[in-house]
Every structure is written in C-alpha cells, then in structure tokens.
C-alpha cells in the first residue's frame, strides 16, 4: 500500500484489483488466497468472498428497505418511504410498459430488482478506493474489492440469468420449432424450399452469433464501464497519495495532492451519472431481451 512506502504504482493497482478469494489451494486444502497469483491458480473452484458479500448485502439491503415499505403500504396517504418506493416502482413500471408488450408478471419485478441492485453495487464505486480496503486491512483482511459490478462473475451471473430466462421464454412462447425457425429462417429469406434449406446454415451462423452476443455485451457493458471507472478512481488516488508523500519535500506535492482531490471530486460527480445510466441500461436491455423472447412471428 501507498503508506508502506515500498510499493510501486503497479502493485498498488494490482492489489486493488484482486478479489478476496476463497478456494482450493495448490496443496488441496481450502482457504483464502494469499496473493493474486494464488487466487488465479485456484481456477473455477473458488469464490470471490468480497464480491459475493457486497453483492448479497446490497441486494438484501434493497429488498429489506423496499419490502418494509411494501409491507406497510397503504392505499391512503403514503409516508415518505412508501412515496419513494412507489416512485421507483412506477418508474420501472412505466419503462416495462413502454418496452415490454407481452404479458408476464415476472419481468417488472425482475427489472426493479436489477435496476436497484446494480445501482447500489455501482454506488459503492463512489466510496473512496482506499477507505474500506484499508479499514479491513487492519482487521487482517488483505484484499477487498467493494464494487461487485467490477467483478465479471457478478455481471455475467446477472446477464446469464437473464439469458437463461430469455431462452426459457423463447422456447415456451414460440415453441421449440418456432424458436429454431427464428434462428434459421432469418435474415436470408426465400420462398423456394430448396433455397430455404440452403440458407439454414448461414442464417444459423448469423443468428447464433447475434444470440450469443446478447449476454456477453449485456454483461461486458456494465463490467467494462464500472471497471474503467474504478481504474480511474485508483489512478486518481495514486496521484493523491504520491502527492501527499511528496508534500513535505516539494511544493509540487501539495499541488498534486490538491489536484488529485479535485479530480476525485469531479470524477465522482461524473460517475454518479454513469452508475445510474449503467444500471438503467442493464435494466432496459433485460426488458428488451425479454420482450424479444415473447415476440411471435
């Protein structure tokens, strides 16, 4: 860490991008990884304790607050919390009504969950990068990434869940044959049955790529934005801490510290927009994908 004085910027960044990983070590025993390399060596049989804890905690926080308001919800004059919850619910409902034309009671609550959950996960990005990891460092926890949406496991987990639901409803609504036809009869169409058969392979190739690209772009968009944002926060904090270390030697250090602080503020303000927008985009894409799954041809 910066305060130790012997750490390079590269190490600082790498340290901040390493999850607290619990998994099977090389010798076969289970435990927390001591370094990034060891965590990577654990392969698939490992969990990112920090990502999952923050992810679960934030999701639970959202559900706790909202369900508390929902349980006490009255048709009469709503209280402040109920008012807020109703505002969010109506906002989601409006979006779902706008994009989702079929009838499915699961889509709107799913959109609500996705929007609020991802928003809260992204919001962790605004916490200064050093505060929580260092506080936990004193408690003996050496790695900590507090923004779950900078972990591809989390974003892919969400996107693949949505993708699975999309496949499920595609098959359920269109039928296996209808879904297969959707994958093989477009975009090249023909009246002649023979030509139709000839077109199946290229059509399938194009449609399959487009199908597979959906969860990938869905998750990578969120992951990429949050990861890049987090990276910039880390770089700004390097500037801040380096300046602070140089401050007693040169006046340039003071300027660097102040500039770092200012940049941190500016980027955080800008980031408020990004985290909301990314949560919103993820939700809208979910709704759109679900709508595509419900379209009959």
């Amino acid at each position: 860490m910066a305060s130790s004085g012997s750490i390079t910027s590269g190490e600082f960044i790498r340290h901040h991008l390493t999850n607290l990983t619990y998994g099977r070590r090389a010798d076969g025993s289970w435990g927390l990884a001591e370094s990034g390399e060891e965590a990577a060596d654990m392969g698939f049989m490992a969990v990112h304790v920090d990502s999952l804890a923050w992810s679960f905690g934030l999701g639970a926080l959202f559900l706790w607050v909202f369900s508390r308001a929902a349980r006490k919800a009255v048709a009469g004059v709503p209280g402040a919390l109920q008012n807020f919850v109703e505002w969010v619910v109506e906002f989601i409902d409006e979006n779902v009504r706008g994009s989702f034309t079929a009838k499915n009671d699961l889509v709107a609550p799913m959109a609500l969950t996705i929007f609020c959950w991802i928003f809260l996960m992204n919001l962790m990005d605004l916490a200064p990068v050093e505060v929580v990891p260092r506080a936990l460092g004193f408690a003996g926890v050496h790695f900590q990434k507090i923004v779950p949406s900078t972990d591809p496991n989390i974003t892919f987990g969400l996107a693949l869940s949505v993708f699975a639901l999309m496949l499920y409803y595609s098959v359920k609504i269109k039928g296996p044959v209808g879904f297969a036809a959707e994958l093989t009869m477009h975009p090249f169409e023909a009246k002649n049955p023979l030509v139709k058969i000839l077109f199946i392979l290229p059509n399938f190739f194009l449609e399959f790529v487009s199908l597979i690209s959906k969860p990938i772009s869905h998750s990578l968009r969120l992951f990429g934005n949050m990861y890049a944002g987090e990276m910039i926060f880390i770089l700004i904090s390097i500037m801040f801490y380096s300046g602070a270390r140089l401050a007693d030697i040169t006046a340039g250090g003071v300027v660097m510290t102040l500039a770092g602080g200012l940049l941190q503020f500016i980027w955080a303000v800008f980031h408020i927009l990004i985290i909301t927008l990314q949560a919103f985009i993820f939700m809208v894409l979910t709704i759109v994908y679900m709508d595509m799954a419900h379209q009959r041809h």
Binding site: F44, M45, G59, F66, P109, L112, T113, F156, L158
Partner: peptide, 25 residues
C-alpha cells in the same frame, strides 16, 4: 477469474427476483 462466484450470483439473483416479486412488487 471466472469461478464459482458466478453460480452464487445466479442463485442470489433468482432468490432476489422471487423475493422482490412476492414481497415488494
């Protein structure tokens, strides 16, 4: 690293969506 975290996240998602539908929405 893609690992078991992903499956746990899928599980959380399923539980949260179910809970949200039943007790919030």
């Amino acid at each position: 690293n893609i690992n078991l975290t992903l499956l746990f996240q899928v599980l959380f998602f399923a539980v949260f969506v179910w809970f949200s539908k039943k007790f919030v929405w």
